[in-house]
């Protein structure tokens, strides 16, 4: 180190910075493995829709479950002030359900309790994620974004039958 103008990093502090970097790199590896190897993912753009007409025709005009093949489902969910359509759904255990969620008015949230499905619902966009249900029970889906006076009461239930 030259005498003038140098960083003067204390050896303890240097070790601390190294520890911090190792920690952050390990966490980055952990979330990458969870994301890209275990398939715990966040949504990506699916399609654009027109919120003014999305409830009039197309899949969200008749929201609900569609069975694609045995055990494989699509769930089209319409969020609106202040309810989800449909309010209730039932699938058998082991079902793999792909959710397509949109809003016809303001922003909402969609969080399916006890699972990792937790997305922002944005008018004009479709939030898509796939979840497999291995445990029977009733899973509430609740609105997690402020959407006006009735926001606190906005929820629905997914039944997973044994």
């Amino acid at each position: 180190m030259t005498s003038k103008s140098s960083m003067h990093i204390d050896p303890y502090e240097r070790n601390w910075i190294i520890i911090s970097i190792v920690l952050l790199v390990s966490f980055a590896v952990a979330i990458s493995v969870a994301g890209f190897a275990f398939g715990i993912q966040v949504p990506s753009p699916e399609q654009r829709v027109d919120p003014r007409t999305v409830a009039d025709s197309g899949p969200w005009a008749d929201p609900g479950l569609r069975e694609l093949s045995p055990g494989k489902y699509e769930a089209y969910i319409l969020a609106q002030t202040w309810s989800f359509l449909p309010r209730e759904m039932t699938v058998p255990i082991g079902a793999e359900v792909t959710f397509y969620i949109t809003s016809k008015d303001v922003q909402h949230g969609f969080k399916l309790q006890e699972t990792n499905l937790n997305v922002q619902v944005v008018p004009g966009q479709v939030s898509k994620l796939t979840v497999t249900f291995d445990r029977p029970g009733d899973y509430d889906y609740i609105c997690t974004e402020y959407c006006g006076s009735g926001h606190a009461a906005m929820f629905g239930t997914l039944h997973v039958e044994p």
Binding site: I17, S20, I21, L24, F27, A28, I31, G35, Q41, V42, P43, S44, P45, E46, N118, V119, Q120, V121, V122, G124, Q125, V126, S127, K128
Partner: peptide, 22 residues
Amino acid sequence: VDPGVPAGWKFLHAILTYSVFL
């Protein structure tokens, strides 16, 4: 968890966020 932003860009910002932790 926004629908309109690609996952790859979200991941890039995750890494950048880790770097601002330093």
